[in-house]
């Protein structure tokens, strides 16, 4: 098992609690993400995985606990500081969340808006095409999101997440709704990103093949706690029944 070194951890979560009325989703969750690491979060549907990463990016306010991203406490940041932080953190929504009134090009340009002054039009176009070629969808650049299949939308959403070359990427189920071949390609893309730009990622996934390819380390989110953590081999050989369920 990896030893946690506070110097290199880019995200550090301690004692995170979040409930919706009587529904205690996260009870006392702690985890660290090291620099350059791919961390997979495994958990049943409804166990609070999406809630967890929304708390990290500041879309949801946790009830208690501490979240530090690059050493800064997310909960105490002002809106502007939070924006600064979000440039460095990419987020892939489970529902894709493509802007359906905009073309694919405009969708991809949107995160670049704040850098428009620094970029020339040609430069932006290059970035957009590069992001699209990463996911193999250059031909869709002038289509609307509704004209694409679900899997294509997922890939566009992924391209939009990666276009700013964030240092940390939070993937909420990057391969659901994709065929096994494309799913595998996406997983390799995630690993490539990690190698190429030394990004750190938190990946939420149910797809065991994807987990196998991408994970450096896995945490199991069960009953709102960090139930277990370890590499793919360690957990898949575990005798614990709750863990075994995921690897069958």
């Amino acid at each position: 098992m990896k030893t946690e070194n506070t110097n290199t951890s880019v995200i550090s979560i301690k004692g995170l609690k979040k409930s919706f009325d009587e529904n205690h989703v996260l009870r006392d969750f702690s985890v660290e993400l090291a620099e350059g690491e791919n961390l997979v979060v495994l958990g049943k549907s409804g166990s609070g995985k999406s809630v967890l990463i929304k708390c990290i990016i500041g879309l949801m306010k946790p009830d208690e606990g501490n979240i530090e991203v690059f050493g800064e406490n997310v909960m105490t940041l002002s809106h502007d500081e939070l924006d600064e932080m979000r440039v460095k953190v990419g987020f892939l929504f489970q529902s894709n969340a493509l802007y359906d009134s905009m073309t694919i090009r405009e969708n991809l340009e949107f995160p670049l808006r704040r850098h428009w002054d620094k970029n020339t039009q040609g430069n932006i176009n290059d970035l957009v095409m590069e992001a699209l070629s990463n996911v193999g969808l250059e031909s869709t650049v002038d289509k609307m999101p509704s004209e694409l299949s679900g899997g294509m939308q997922k890939r566009i959403a992924l391209a939009r997440t990666l276009i700013l070359k964030p240092k940390i990427i939070l993937y909420d189920e990057p391969t659901t709704g994709l065929d096994p071949i494309t799913g595998k390609e996406i997983c390799h893309l995630i690993v490539d990103m990690q190698k190429k730009y030394n990004t750190s990622s938190i990946i939420i996934s149910h797809d065991i093949n994807c987990v196998k390819i991408t994970a450096n380390r896995i945490v199991m989110l069960i009953d709102g706690l960090c139930y277990a953590t370890g590499t793919f081999e360690e957990l898949s050989n575990s005798k614990d029944e709750k863990i075994q369920q995921f690897f069958d």
Binding site: K54, L59, V89, A97, L98, Y99
Partner: peptide, 17 residues
């Protein structure tokens, strides 16, 4: 509809108010 499909959240995380 932007709200329920998380498009507003997506704007938020991409640094646009």
């Amino acid at each position: 509809s932007m709200k329920v499909t998380e498009q507003i959240d997506a704007m938020e995380v991409s640094g646009t108010n």
